[in-house]
Nucleic acid binder design. Sequence first.
DNA 1: AACCAGGGGCCGG
DNA 2: CCGGCCCATGGT
Length: 286
Amino acid sequence: MNYSEKNNCILITNQKDFNIEQTLECGQCFRFERLAPLSYKIIALNRILYITQSKEGIFLSPCTMKEFETLWYNYFDLGRDYSIIKEELSKDPVLKTAIDFSKGIRILNQQPFECLISFIISQNNRIPMIKKVIESISRKWGRQTDGGYLFPTVSALSFATEAELMECKTGFRYKYIRDCMDKISNGTIDLEKTARLSTAEAKAELMKIKGVGTKVADCVLLFSMEKTDAFPTDVWVKRVMEYFYFNKQNTPVKEIHTFAAQKWGRYAGFAQQYLFYYARTQQIKT
DNA sequence: AACCAGGGGCCGG
DNA sequence: CCGGCCCATGGT
């Protein structure tokens, strides 16, 4: 991989294992807008970023050399060699097939706070709806910048009332967001400390928040705390796992977790992401 | 352990 | 056009 800067724009060349569409559309993040094929506007890390992928490479703008090196490089997980992970996982024929459909997925390193609120909203909800609610919350409490509203800071969102959250179409989740903000504000939960704990300890910490169960906690661990052994098991992953590994039989999530941990270990999170994308694009049903 | 929590898109009739 | 079902679920 190489990169260079020109006119506040970074061009990345020779980047392997990266497809911007697969990376953004695989359900791990919500604040992006497709402008054209392989061209997106992303709101993350308190910034707006336009990203376009072509034969020449990947263009990021506006983006200085410093912003690329200190922020986006890590955000897009560019320091990780996915070919090693894919090679290891491909020993399993099911995953080999799944990976063939999504060779360019990368797991983003998002901000824990935004990720946590986003996945609380995600429960029993659809992706287009989740995106609308997060946008609405950002408009109400986030800072406006050229090109859009940033995700709110902890202090800004801590002022949100239940009625205001309801206006943002959070539905029955308003009380969960309120509980989350209370626990962060009063120090019951410290997300930076939580991120440094082991996967199991961090998960228990996150699950102290009302509305954060196994699935939501696993998403936060995987997508914002670099816990690559986390294995978020939603209805799609449950379905695809039962279909391929449990003889199409209904199986408790706990059993699926044990199986995934044993089979894929620290790569379980990556396996989950390939399987999720595969299940959704191929409409795997039991 | 079944049921409920808004809200909205989708689907069959 | 409308009811039923489902949704990157968790609490009770």
